[in-house]
Design a protein around this nucleic acid. Structure first.
Length: 427
RNA sequence: GCCCCGGUAGUGUAGCGGCCUAUCAUGCGGGCCUGUCGAGCCCGCGACCCGGGUUCAAAUCCCGGCCGGGGCGCCA
């Protein structure tokens, strides 16, 4: 057995023999006494080495260990006020499982910061930092928070193809892939497939999976590969969809903040009250124009415009009743020039977009024509609308955007283990 | 796709024509120290992205390349 206890399990003991394994975080030598700080995923433990007890040779050997080496220490746990952690382990024996080379390309315990590039190139080391790990623990909790709500509300978790023959919505660029003798693409969204499932009578589905966009954007809030959380529900309107979404967000934040590692992020966020405020596109436009930024009716909001909304509104809010012309073909038209589309915002950031969908075949064809789309290439999708398609609604939510907002991380790349951006394909 | 900005020891930086055999911190190596916990003190190690040009003189100015960061557009 490598270890009997994690550092956290050992921290509550007193007098017991334990074996703990982890990384050498730091070593402090003070003449005839030395301290080795050992770190594992769960925390830290201090190994206290007294030269006269452990022997001259062992003392020298152990204090010459390099930082970030992997060791396993066997010894007695003692509660003590003298240690900052409130306990220490007095080792009889330390096994060196793997000696780390020196110098480290990125210091884990160093007091200097590192650039994003250095961090990502040495991501395995970067992720040894407890505050970096905390982002991924939060990410896991956020996912669980949303998944729990969806499962509880009877959604079926599904997976749709990521290698596809046609664009989902037009507009964004796709990554081409060779599919034997055919040309194919990486899917930008599961939109069309989850709608087909409504025609299959699945009633409520959700999918948590990667989506790919070949846009050459270079910002702190875009990725070329991201995780899209998509939900779709039958016999439901836009309001029903928004309501599921806000319950999911609320629960995600609840799960994230109640984890004890969340405090490492120094993020001040409260579990939000629901329902979130609904603001129509027209109302939003009025606010923006009143602040001197001119946006014409029917235009999408610029970053500058969204910053104004972010200042005027509460943290989370929906923008509803969008002009039909700036939304994708599959949204339901409403009062001539409007649609049943909505966006979920957090201050100035777009988190999610959704809509009640157009389930009427003839109307769908008409909208596609007006947008210059070729209905023939969407036949696999459209045929589901000819043999019994219920009214339905849904949304897509960018996981990393949500993680960014909840954890307070400023660059979306920090929310992904190994991010894919305009120039990064390795690691 | 358009527009800014930047590349100096392992890491993060200062310097922006001659005071540079290049600053500081961190790290690494060595020494002292029996309770450190951002340990302390002393000694040492280690760097100007690549190619061309301007100049008596280039880390510093100019051109090209490569690499990176950010903003906009677009979106999640």
């Amino acid at each position: 057995m490598f270890r009997t206890h994690t550092t956290k399990e050992a921290s509550v003991l007193d007098g017991e023999e334990v074996k703990v394994c982890g990384w050498v975080h730091d070593i402090r030598v003070l003449g005839r006494i030395a301290f080795i700080i050992i770190r594992d995923r769960y925390g830290f433990a201090q190994l206290t080495l007294i030269k006269s007890v452990i022997g001259k040779e062992n003392f020298k050997k152990y204090t010459k260990l390099t930082r970030e080496s992997v060791i396993c220490a066997r010894g007695k746990v003692q509660k003590t006020e003298q240690a900052n952690l409130g306990f220490e382990i007095v080792p009889d024996e330390i096994d060196v499982l793997n000696l780390a080379e020196t110098p480290l390309p990125l210091g884990v315990a160093d007091k200097v910061s590192a650039d994003m590039e250095t961090r990502i190139e040495n991501r395995f080391l970067d992720m040894r930092k407890p505050e970096v790990l905390a982002v991924f623990i939060a990410r896991s909790n956020i996912l669980r928070g949303i998944r729990d709500v969806l499962l509880k509300e009877n959604f079926i978790e599904v997976h749709t193809p990521k290698i596809v023959a046609t664009a989902t919505e037009g507009g964004t660029e796709l990554f081409p892939v060779k599919y034997f003798e055919k040309d194919a693409f990486l899917n930008q969204s599961p939109q069309l497939y989850k709608q087909i499932l409504m025609g299959s009578g699945f009633d409520r589905v959700f999918e948590i999976a990667p989506a790919f966009r070949a846009e050459e954007h270079n910002t702190t809030r875009h990725l070329n590969e991201f995780i899209s959380i998509d939900a779709e529900m039958s016999f439901a309107d836009d309001e029903d969809a928004m309501s599921v979404l806000e319950r999911g967000i609320q629960n995600a934040i609840k799960y994230a903040v109640e984890d004890e590692t969340f405090k490492l992020l120094n993020q001040d966020i409260n579990v939000p009250e629901i329902p979130f405020k609904r603001l129509t596109y027209d109302e939003a436009l009025e606010i923006i124009n009143s602040r001197g930024v001119n946006i014409e009716w029917g235009e999408d909001f610029s970053t500058e415009a969204l910053k104004i909304l972010g200042e005027e509104m509460d943290d989370f809010y929906f923008i509803t009743k969008w002009p039909l012309e700036i939304k994708p073909f599959y949204v339901l038209p409403f009062e001539e020039k409007y649609s049943k589309a909505f966006d979920l915002m957090y201050r100035d950031k777009e988190l999610s977009s959704g809509a009640q969908r157009n389930h009427v075949y003839a109307s769908l064809i008409e909208v596609m024509k007006s947008k210059g789309l070729n209905a023939d290439s969407f036949e696999f999708y459209l045929r589901a609308f000819r043999y019994g398609m219920p009214p339905h609604s849904g949304w897509g939510l960018g996981l990393e955007r949500l993680v960014m907002i909840i954890t307070g991380v400023k660059n979306i790349r920090e929310c992904v283990l190994f991010p894919r951006d305009r120039t990064r394909l390795v690691p």
